[in-house]
């Protein structure tokens, strides 16, 4: 299994707080890896470094064989738009755009024409069974629907990696299960890797394996 996205020896501190103290990580194409660990252990910081949002103080992040932080900020921004997708706990949808427009947004930003982008968005939304809320604004849909719209938005560019940071954190069990099932199914279909930050075992159980972050270090166990 070749590593699609990997990190070695990541160090990151915010002022006096040390979030990462030499974390390593690797994920292959199509793999779903749960990043677990107690709160404050540096899970989110690891995700932010892997996604090229936060520059680590030391260590490297490699994506498809290139050093992510050797690129310029603009290149990383473009990469995040084309190759990565993001699902956060909440509040990631643009409140004034309709759900359909939200999902189409990454394509529009990439220069796709509106009609085409929205058609593609509608298709992904249908797969996630949220096509019925397409004309509504995010404020008018339920939490679970909103998260599935967010998953649709993350998927719409057919990314290589999806970063999901507590994607079910604000949902009840049933809605959470639904979001996870659809996220993982869609990812598997498209050979998309998923970095899944969660503290819930039932959510982590959707992964292929887990990486545990404790005190800024990772312990990875590859299970057969």
């Amino acid at each position: 299994m070749t590593t699609l996205l990997g990190a070695t020896g990541l160090h990151k501190s915010f002022g006096p707080t040390e979030a990462l103290l030499g974390a390593d990580f690797g994920i292959a194409a199509g793999e779903v890896v749960a990043v677990m660990g107690p709160s404050g252990s540096g899970k989110s910081t690891l995700l932010h470094c892997l996604a090229g949002i936060v520059r680590p103080d030391a260590g490297t992040v490699g994506y498809q064989g290139r050093d992510l932080f050797a690129d310029t900020d603009a290149e990383r921004t473009a990469l995040r738009r084309t190759d990565f997708g993001f699902v956060f706990q909440f509040g990631q949808l643009v409140p004034e755009l309709s759900c359909l427009e939200n999902v189409a947004l990454p394509l529009r930003l990439g220069g796709t024409r509106r009609k085409k982008a929205e058609a593609a968005a509608a298709e992904v939304m249908a797969r996630l069974e949220v096509d019925d809320v397409a004309p509504k604004r995010p404020g008018e849909v339920s939490g679970g629907q909103g998260q599935r719209v967010a998953v649709a938005r993350a998927l719409v560019t057919a990314p290589k990696v999806i970063f999901a940071d507590e994607p079910t954190g604000a949902l009840d069990s049933l809605s959470g299960e639904r979001v996870m099932r659809m996220l993982v199914t869609a990812a598997k279909e498209h050979d998309t890797a998923v970095v899944l930050v969660t503290h819930e075992a039932r959510v982590a159980a959707y992964s292929d394996r887990e990486a545990v972050v404790r005190d800024g270090r990772t312990r990875q166990q590859v299970t057969a």
Binding site: H48, A51, I53, A74, T77, A78, L79, R80, R81, T82, F84, G85, F86, F88, F90, G91, Q92, L93, V94, P95, L105, P106, L109, R153, A154
Partner: peptide, 16 residues
């Protein structure tokens, strides 16, 4: 008021 969506968009690769 819109910190979160703005931050999420920026994280998701929307150029500033």
């Amino acid at each position: 008021e819109r910190r979160r969506p703005l931050a999420a968009m920026s994280a998701g690769g929307v150029p500033r």
